[in-house]
């Protein structure tokens, strides 16, 4: 009696339900199933693409940020030119010697602009030559060879390095004696006497026996 009442309240009749379920034999056709599932697969593909675009955009942005941060961390810290110039000569020489080694190791592809192949070839050849040979070389290489030392600077260097740039001078790697003297001479003529003296001292340290023009001899430290 209680069960009957419960069934009435919940709108159930177990016997009718049982009989009804026994009649449930119909099913949609296979063709209908295929059509519906095919439509679902196509739509699912669209849904996937909808997620793909923002996802790949986010990935690209993240990658870009990561690379930028890494590059910022790896950027070499160059010594401050003003600090360097204000230091005492003996100390600055020591720093220069140390940084000079680093600069040589750091191989200067970033610092040097690419030279034209034939000029680069000349420049390479000139590095292998002794100073005396170098003096004779311009005529052979087709480059005009005036008497002035300043014009003896190898072409690749002239193209890549502005003479008056102090910042360039501090990060300049080991260079050819003639070019170096030309640069010192230019500095002296521009009134950069102190820098010229320091450069001269450094030059003498690297090339103790290389002849120095009379105009620059006065920049050498006294005996």
């Amino acid at each position: 009696m209680t069960e009957e009442r419960h069934n009435r309240d919940s709108g159930q009749d177990p016997e009718i339900t049982k009989l009804y379920r026994a009649t449930r034999s119909e099913e949609p056709s296979a063709e209908l199933d295929t059509r519906i599932l095919e439509q679902a697969r196509i739509t699912a593909r669209h849904h996937r693409r909808r997620w793909l675009v923002p996802l790949s955009s986010a990935a690209v942005i993240l990658l870009g940020l990561t690379l930028t941060l890494q590059l910022m961390e790896q950027e070499p810290t160059l010594p401050d030119i003003d600090d360097y110039l204000s230091e005492e000569p003996s100390k600055s020489e020591a720093v220069e010697a140390a940084t000079g080694e680093k600069k040589q190791k750091a191989a200067s592809p970033v610092l040097q602009a690419p030279a034209r192949p034939e000029l680069e070839k000349d420049s390479l050849r000139s590095r292998e030559m002794a100073p005396a040979e170098y003096d004779a070389a311009p005529a052979a290489s087709g480059i005009s060879a005036p008497g002035s030392m300043m014009q003896d600077v190898p072409p690749a260097k002239l193209m890549s390095e502005p003479v008056s740039s102090q910042a360039d001078e501090t990060i300049r790697p080991y260079e050819e004696p003639e070019a170096w003297l030309a640069r010192i001479s230019a500095l002296y003529e521009q009134g950069e006497t102190r820098t010229a003296i320091e450069e001269m001292a450094s030059f003498r340290q690297h090339y103790p026996d290389h002849p120095v023009p009379d105009t620059l001899k006065k920049l050498l430290p006294g005996p």
Partner: peptide
Amino acid sequence: HRGDAQAFETLY
């Protein structure tokens, strides 16, 4: 809705 066609098949 996230693109899983098999989930739909189960539901179907």
